[in-house]
Amino acid sequence: MFATSSDGTSTPSLNTEREMRASPKKQQSFDRLRARVEFPAVVETNRAYLHAAVPAAGETEMTGWALSCLPSTGRGRFSTLNMQRMEVLYLSSGVKAGISGAVGGFVVVRRSILHRYVGQGRSVEEVFPGLKFNSERRYETAGDDHIQVSGRHDQLIAALKDENFAAAARDFAAFLLTGTTNLSRHHNYQLADEVLGRKPAIS
């Protein structure tokens, strides 16, 4: 259930947040992830993405973006950050993702902005060695100007700290945040608390 503010935007109602926080299934998922050695990497990578791509991320939580915890969509998946109907940041076991390292995944960013590196005489592969760039993957809600970038979590974090890569992530996120995610039911407030570095506002 969502409440409508004076400016016409929808925000999660207090009951929705309280009920979701009280969900035994969501708490158990968070506890299971927190007990894993990969937990800090999952938190740090999601935090790096939101810091780079989503200004004032707490204001669009559950409406513009949702963060799942140990989603049932695939074994070995740790978290998925969704906007509208698409996955913009996916993290899983490195083995599951076909990437060496404990945690691997992908992020989706604006291709045209990222490829400005080519005009500087360098390819994106040269700027970000170790990352893989896939422009063949298409998302129905994303248009044509996007690219999937995959790699180890530390490589993704380093890229998101780069000003130009962050701009590509931010521009694409801004486009998606003009709509509402239809995957808010999968949001895990406990994991979001860790990522956003906050204490729960309600119990």
Results as ranks from 00 to 15, higher is better:
L176A: 06
E140R: 05
G197E: 05
R18D: 01
S72A: 12
G101D: 15
V54H: 03
V42R: 07
Q28I: 00
R32P: 01
E59V: 00
G179V: 03
S150L: 07
M20R: 14
A52F: 06
L196M: 15
E125M: 05
A159F: 01
L191N: 01
A159D: 03
L160E: 14
V37S: 15
P12G: 09
A102Y: 06
V43P: 09
H51E: 13
M86S: 12
Q190F: 05
L177G: 05
H146P: 09
D7V: 02
R18Y: 13
R198M: 11
E125Y: 02
Y189L: 11
R77I: 15
V95N: 09
P24G: 05
H187L: 13
L183D: 12
V149S: 06
Q155F: 09
Q155C: 05
V108E: 08
V127M: 07
P129T: 04
E126M: 04
L177S: 06
Y117H: 09
D7I: 03
Q190M: 05
E19D: 11
C69K: 02
R21V: 02
L156F: 13
A3G: 08
A97N: 08
A174N: 03
K199E: 15
T141M: 12
R85I: 06
K132N: 14
S5H: 06
L191W: 08
F128R: 02
T11R: 06
F175V: 08
R152I: 01
A57D: 02
F175E: 14
D154T: 01
K161R: 15
Y117V: 00
P12K: 03
A97C: 08
V149N: 07
M20P: 03
F133T: 06
K132R: 14
R152L: 08
R185A: 13
V149H: 10
T4V: 14
E194R: 11
I113M: 09
Y90Q: 10
A167E: 15
H153D: 15
I113R: 10
R18S: 14
A169H: 08
G151K: 01
P12Q: 08
P71S: 04
T60W: 10
T180Y: 07
Y139V: 00
D145V: 02
F39K: 06
